[in-house]
Design a protein around this nucleic acid. Structure first.
Length: 594
RNA sequence: GGGGACGUAGCUCAGUUGGUUAGAGCGCUGCCCUGUCACGGCAGAGGUCGCGGGUUCGAGCCCCGUCGUCCCCGCCA
C-alpha cells in the first residue's frame, strides 16, 4: 500500500491505488502524492517515459481516485523527503488510470488547518479521510480488540442484549420506539444493559461482557453523545477487588495498543476523601489537591477577618502560573469574586496579608501548608459570616464549589502549567478508583432521596445493620465505585443486591410502594427469587477511553458519525419528520410541529 | 430551561468611530515551467457580510428578533 514502500523495495514493480493528496505540476514533469489508509507515496510522471500517463496526470485533481502501475525507485541523493515515511523512494509511473473524478471538496483532507465542525460533520466522509481521523479510528479498533481478547482470555462470554426493550421510569430520559403491532405502546432503547446483565448472572453465565451501544436522551457535552459505547461486564461472587483487577487488566491491554505501559493497581480513594481533597467525585490528579486551612484560621483570626467560624477554609495552588501583573491579578480576583455571586464565599488575599504585620505569620503558614512555589498561583476561599442555606442539606457544598473553581482556573492556565499536555508516557494518565459512594442523594427540589448510583446497588452490610437505611440515609455507603482518568469519569459500577428482601427494602427506602416497585421492576424482583448469586460489575465508556488516548477533547473525534450538541446528524440530516402514512401505521399523531 | 463565544469568498480569517467599488492567505480556473514535496511564475473568476426587521442621508459595523455551530450550568438513576 501507499505507506509501505521503503528503500529496499527499489526496483520492484508495484500497483498503487488511492486518492490524489496533492499534485505538483512542473510542465513536462508531474508529481502526484497518492494517499490511502496506510500513508502517502510520491508518484513521478515524466512525459518522456510515459506520455499517456503524463497526460492523464495533467487532468488529475485533488481527491481523484487513481491507480498507478510503475516501478519503485530510490530517490537520488538530496531529493529524499525526511518528513515522509516513504520519503526515500518514489514510484515512476508507467501507467495511470483515473478511476474516478472528484468535485473540488469544500475543504481538503490534505490541509493542515481544519475546517469548522459544521462543515466537517456535513462532509464527514471527507473529514474522515484526514490522517488524524484515520489514526483515531485505527486506534479505536485496536483498543476494542485488545479488550475483547483480554476478557475472553479471562473466561468472559460476550452476550448481546436487546436494543428494543422496556422503558423504566427512572434515570435518564429514554429514546422511545413506537410499536406498530401494539398501537400506543413503546419500546425504549436501553440506557445501559444493566438489568439484562444482572439477569444473565441469575442465568448462570459467570462472567459476561459486551461492547454495547447505550442511548440516553439528555443534553449533550463535549464528552457526552446521545448514543455511546460501553464496555459492560458483570461477574458472580465478586469482591470489589476482583472487578478492579479485570478492569485494570483490560485497560493495560488497551493502553498497550497506544504504546503506553500502565502499571496497576491504580490508586484508590473513598468518595468522602475525593470531595474533601478535590471537591469533586472525579478528581484530576494531574494537579495538586486542595488544602484545608481550617487549622491555620484560628477563631481570633476568623473574628478579625470576618470569616464564619463553623465552616471550612480551603486553598489550592495552580502551579507555574508565573508573575501576574497588578491589573491582571486584580481582574482575575474580581472575576472569581463575581463568580461567587451571593453564595457567601470570598477570597482571602494572601499577598496583601503578607504586607501586614499582624497577618504575616498567617500568610506564611498558609503558603507553607499549600507548598506554594515561586511561580505558583495560590487561591484561598473563605466563607463569609452567616451559614448559607445549602449547607443544611449539603455539607460538602463548599468543597464542591472550591473544587469547581480549581478546575476552572486549571483550564484557564493550562498553557502555563502544562499539566494537561501529553508526553506519550504512562505519567500522562492518572487513574483512580473512587469507592464508597453514598447510596442516596437528596433532591432539594422534590424533597426526596434518590439512588445515587442505581437502586440495584448494594449498601455496605454494616450500614444496613446499623439501621441507617431508615434513620440516616445520607450516611449510607454503597458498594459502588467509579474509575476516573485525568478528571474524566471513565466508568462506574457496583456490587449488586442479590436478595429479594433487601431489594424490596431499598425500593421502599426510595419512597416506592411495593405495588409501584412491582409494576416497574416486577419481572426483576421475580427473578431475584429463583436463586440469585451475589454479583457485581462495571461499565466503562469506550469512546472516552479512546478520546483520552487519542489526545482529543471531544467524543466527536473518535465517533465516526457523531451528533451535534443539539443531537442532530448533519450528514444524513436526522432527525426528520415522517409521513402521515407512517404515523398512522404507528397510531401516532404529532401534536405540535416545530 | 439558563449563560457565554462564534457566524464576512469553497476553507481559515482581517475589516478602524457607521462613509467611495468589502480585503488577505489557502483553494479554484487558464497559461508557463523536468526535481518538486505547503513547488514556483503570470493572469483570472469567486460575496444574499447566517436570516428577518428597525434606526440612519448612509449599516458587515448600531438596535430588536430569529436560525445554526461550539463551550459551560441545569440535566445525564
Amino acid at each position: 500500500m501507499c505507506g509501505d514502500l521503503r528503500a529496499e523495495d527499489a526496483g520492484n514493480d508495484v500497483v498503487l491505488m488511492g486518492w490524489v493528496n496533492r499534485r505538483r505540476d512542473h510542465g513536462n514533469l508531474i508529481f502526484l502524492d497518492v494517499r490511502d489508509r496506510s500513508g502517502i507515496t510520491q508518484i513521478v510522471l515524466d512525459i518522456e517515459k510515459s506520455p499517456e500517463a503524463h497526460a492523464k496526470a495533467e487532468a488529475a485533481r485533488s481527491e481523484y481516485v487513481v491507480a498507478v502501475k510503475g516501478s519503485v525507485r530510490k530517490r537520488a541523493a538530496g531529493l529524499e523527503n525526511p518528513n515522509m515515511s516513504t520519503g526515500d523512494v518514489e514510484v515512476v509511473a508507467h501507467e495511470l488510470l483515473l478511476l474516478n473524478e472528484a468535485k473540488t471538496p469544500p475543504f481538503s483532507p490534505a490541509e493542515e488547518a481544519i475546517a469548522n465542525e459544521e462543515v466537517r460533520l456535513k462532509y464527514r466522509y471527507l473529514d474522515l479521510r484526514r490522517v488524524e481521523m484515520q489514526k483515531n479510528f485505527a486506534l479505536r479498533s485496536r483498543v476494542a480488540m485488545a479488550i475483547r481478547n483480554y476478557l475472553v482470555a479471562e473466561g468472559f462470554l460476550e452476550i448481546e442484549t436487546p436494543f428494543m426493550t422496556r422503558s423504566t421510569p427512572e434515570g435518564a430520559r429514554d429514546y422511545l420506539v413506537p410499536s406498530r403491532v401494539h398501537g400506543g405502546h413503546f419500546y425504549a432503547l436501553p440506557q445501559s444493559p444493566q438489568i439484562f446483565k444482572q439477569i444473565l448472572m441469575i442465568s448462570g453465565f459467570d462472567k459476561y461482557f459486551q461492547i454495547a451501544r447505550c442511548f440516553r436522551d439528555e443534553d449533550l457535552r463535549a464528552d457526552r453523545q446521545p448514543e455511546f459505547t460501553q464496555i459492560d461486564l458483570e461477574t458472580t461472587f465478586p469482591q470489589q477487588e476482583l472487578i478492579f483487577g479485570f478492569v485494570e487488566g483490560f485497560l493495560k491491554a488497551a493502553f498497550r495498543e497506544a504504546g503506553i505501559t500502565l502499571e496497576p493497581p491504580f490508586v484508590q480513594m473513598t468518595y468522602d476523601d475525593a470531595i474533601k481533597n478535590y471537591g469533586i467525585d472525579k478528581p484530576d490528579m494531574r494537579l495538586p489537591a486542595m488544602v484545608s486551612l481550617t487549622d491555620e484560621l484560628t477563631s481570633e483570626l476568623r473574628e478579625t477577618l470576618k470569616i464564619e467560624q463553623a465552616l471550612p477554609v480551603l486553598g489550592f495552588v495552580i502551579p507555574s502560573v508565573g508573575e501576574l501583573s497588578g491589573t491582571a491579578r486584580k481582574s482575575l480576583l474580581s472575576e472569581i469574586r463575581g463568580g461567587f455571586g451571593d453564595s457567601g464565599l470570598d477570597l482571602l488575599d494572601v499577598a496583601r496579608l503578607k504586607t501586614n504585620e499582624t497577618f504575616a505569620p498567617l500568610a506564611a503558614a498558609i503558603e507553607t501548608k499549600a507548598s506554594l512555589g515561586a511561580d505558583d498561583l495560590l487561591i484561598v476561599v473563605t466563607p463569609k459570616l452567616g451559614t448559607p442555606a445549602m449547607w443544611n442539606y449539603d455539607p460538602q457544598w463548599i468543597y464542591k464549589r472550591v473544587g469547581a473553581l480549581r478546575l476552572t482556573l486549571a483550564a484557564k492556565f493550562a498553557d502555563k502549567h502544562k499539566r494537561f499536555e501529553q508526553t506519550g508516557t504512562a505519567a500522562d494518565f492518572k487513574f483512580l478508583w473512587v469507592t464508597d459512594f453514598p447510596m442516596y442523594e437528596w433532591d432539594e427540589e422534590h424533597k426526596v432521596w434518590n439512588a445515587a448510583h442505581h437502586p440495584f446497588t448494594s449498601p455496605h452490610e454494616e450500614d444496613i445493620k446499623a439501621g441507617k437505611l431508615t434513620n440516616d440515609k445520607g450516611a449510607v455507603r454503597a458498594l459502588a465505585y467509579d474509575i476516573v482518568l485525568n478528571g474524566t469519569e471513565l466508568g462506574s459500577g457496583s456490587i449488586r443486591i442479590h436478595r429479594q428482601d433487601v431489594q424490596a427494602e431499598i425500593f421502599r427506602s426510595l419512597g416506592m410502594t411495593d405495588e409501584e416497585a412491582h409494576e416497574r421492576f416486577g419481572f426483576f424482583l421475580d427473578a431475584l427469587e429463583y436463586g440469585t448469586p451475589p454479583h457485581g460489575g462495571i461499565a466503562l465508556g469506550l469512546d472516552r477511553i479512546v478520546m483520552i488516548l487519542a489526545g482529543a477533547t471531544s467524543l466527536r473525534e473518535v465517533i465516526a458519525f457523531p451528533k451535534t450538541a443539539k443531537a442532530i446528524d448533519l450528514m444524513v440530516d436526522a432527525p426528520t419528520p415522517v409521513s402521515e402514512q407512517q404515523l398512522k401505521e404507528l397510531s401516532l399523531r404529532v401534536a405540535t410541529k416545530s
